[in-house]
Amino acid sequence: MADHVSGDRQARTIVVGLGNPLLGDDGVGWRVADEVEGLLRAARDAGRPIPDVEIERLGVGGLRLMECLTGYEAAILVDAAEFPDRPIGEVRSCCFDELAEFAAGHLDSAHDASLRTALTLGRRLGASLPGSIHAVTVQARRTDEFSEELSPAVAAAIPVAAEAVVELVAAGAR
């Protein structure tokens, strides 16, 4: 599932497309990850230098997600979002630490810890976790009905979100 675009050893930065690709707009994180991978491969094939990055697609949260981030210096999480009163397809980018106020309505950790708690745990246990974690989100319309189709506005946001991710990667996710 993981794809190291630029080589064999562990990359510095990981881009994680989060969500469930079978649940309609919830799959947008994976689709953005696909798009980012395509952009980076095209750049590499054209002989342009590309950042040291690994692309991953996951449907997990909490402790499992924290474990998957171990060993990277920077992480970019791409996910569907259901912020109140925001237009469908809106792309937002922020530091993970800024997400607290937006956590409303999202279940992340019914079975273990929240990612925030998991990261604190990992750091206290001495795990090498990213110093910088960003989130790029796409406002979703529907994430509770099984479908492999995205809403048109969400699908249209994929290139925008992918560009935001590539910019973060290029900037070292700082």
Partner: peptide
Amino acid sequence: CATHSLPGEMP
């Protein structure tokens, strides 16, 4: 859908 949306605390 416990893990499908943006990370946050369980509401």
